[in-house]
Design a protein around this nucleic acid. Structure first.
Lengths: 153, 153
DNA sequence: GCGTCTTTCTTGCGGGTGCAACTAACTGTA
DNA sequence: TACAGTTAGTTGCACCCGCAAGAAAGACGC
């Protein structure tokens, strides 16, 4: 049976998406780089700073960050070296490790959050305007819903 | 001066985007994996098969694929090992290397193109519908335009 | 209590990528 | 021709990540 190839419009939209996402991520990383962290590091700071008692279990954090267990271990290694996060074993379940935001980590968060928010605003939200932002959320909401419906985590 | 933090709606759209893009790329890679190639490999096949005489200069290909020179060298290494691409030096400018699609590479392209197109249709285009696809193209067209306006390549 | 299964986290390994340095080769100027 | 500047591609190095394997510890059934 013949393949249903992409129309001109579909091809254009898809290529626009693939290429712009790449460029966008590169720029967002570059805006954060002078402060010594990556977007991955920043996401860790965000989740921990919003968590109760500024700490999360490794496995929960891995789920939130969409990282494999080993990926999170290595990412935290770097952040521990930088003094932003501390590991602490859990008394009630000695399998789990707490990833705990340190005061230095909170300072870093407060330092870079305005930078990153400004970066997202400048490169994404401003060019789109309120209507475009709404469309962005709708589009990826639908894509995400479909993905999770097909592959229930 | 106070930071202009994200509104609820902005935060929601942005998170939807970040997380769904991650999941989407993972699924697209997974759909291609059984055929022995990555999305990166697939992009190489697409560009070469559309190129005149099925070949491109390394530097042009790197630009098209948004890859660094070294990144392209390594990616082609793998594809040469698989017999999909051949390197050929250029007679008129001995600095340049041609990346040339082989018959086996074209076969592979014809084999996997329907798979990948079906994957994109299933995970992206179908859930969005014509209007959504148009919005996707618009949104990333605007983001891409702004990026290139600010940082002329 | 004991053995088994499951969960949590870490480590070894391989793959992919960018930057910097390097070689080779083309270009322009005198 | 000779030299300086530019361009094309590769390699060394470092980093990030996932999968598979393993160690440690909790949960369940008997």
């Amino acid at each position: 049976m013949a393949t249903d190839w992409l129309s001109e419009a579909e091809q254009h939209s898809w290529r626009n998406f693939i290429m712009s996402v790449h460029d966008l991520m590169t720029v967002l990383e570059a805006d954060l780089a002078p402060y010594g962290l990556t977007m991955g590091d920043y996401e860790v700071l965000v989740w921990l700073s919003e968590a109760e008692q500024s700490r999360m279990r490794m496995c929960d954090l891995a789920g939130a960050l969409q990282l494999s267990p080993s990926g999170l271990t290595r990412r935290l290694d770097g952040m521990v070296r930088n003094g932003w996060v501390e590991r602490a074993s859990c008394a009630s379940d000695r399998r789990v490790m707490w990833a705990h935001l340190t005061p230095a980590g909170l300072d870093k968060m407060n330092e870079v959050a305005p930078i990153h928010v400004g970066s997202v605003r400048r490169h994404v939200l401003d060019p789109l305007g309120p209507v475009g932002v709404q469309q962005l959320g709708d589009v990826f909401g639908r894509i995400g819903d479909r993905l999770h419906a097909a592959q229930p985590a």
